[in-house]
């Protein structure tokens, strides 16, 4: 039988060591071992984006990453987006714009939207819709989400 593997990674800025089975997904380890339950299991096959995290800065579906692959990697989950007790402008705009209903998809949207704004601080509505296509929401009809991202981009630019 296979042996558990020791993995060392940086999660939300902190060095973390964990033991995992070679077939365990990163999502599973984040939730069950590290108790970071922000990333959600929606479809568990790469369609819904509810489990999105940043892996070395790039948004990925953590259900389609093996935990062993995280060795040496830098991971950001939704828990790592707020800084010093301050909500990220995206989180603030999602709240103020009521850009969520049941909330299951929200962590994934926040993480992907953060990756987008990190890369492109002033995206068009079309660019936002394109880059968030891998995140599915079954409640809101997307409009409030897109508006919240546009508002956050504006706030971030004004702050800088």
């Amino acid at each position: 039988m296979t042996k558990k593997v020791q993995v060392s990674a940086t999660v939300n800025g902190e060095t973390v060591d964990f033991l995992c089975e070679p077939w365990q997904s990163l999502l599973d380890v984040l939730r069950e071992e590290l108790h970071l339950t922000g990333a959600k299991e929606g479809c568990n096959n790469g369609n819904c984006g509810a489990c999105s995290v940043l892996l070395d800065g790039a948004p990925v579906n953590s259900c389609l990453v093996l935990a062993v692959e995280a060795e040496g990697a830098e991971i950001t989950t939704v828990e790592g987006i707020a800084q010093n007790g301050q909500l990220h402008p995206l989180q603030q705009c999602f709240l103020e714009g009521a850009a969520l209903q049941c909330g299951i998809c929200t962590p994934g949207f926040l993480v992907t939207a953060k990756a987008l704004l990190d890369q492109n601080p002033n995206p068009t509505e079309e660019q936002i819709r394109f880059e968030l296509a891998g995140n599915l929401c079954r409640c809101t009809g997307y409009d409030k989400i897109i508006k919240a991202v546009l508002a956050a981009a504006k706030n971030l630019q004004e702050a800088n």
């Binding site: 790469g46 984006g49 999105s52 892996l55 790039a58 948004p59 990925v60 579906n61 389609l64 990453v65 992907t112 990756a115 880059e131 968030l132 296509a133 891998g134 995140n135």
Partner: peptide
């Protein structure tokens, strides 16, 4: 091919 999360991998 898929969305951004898929294209990252």
């Amino acid at each position: 091919i898929g969305g951004w999360q898929i294209q990252s991998r």
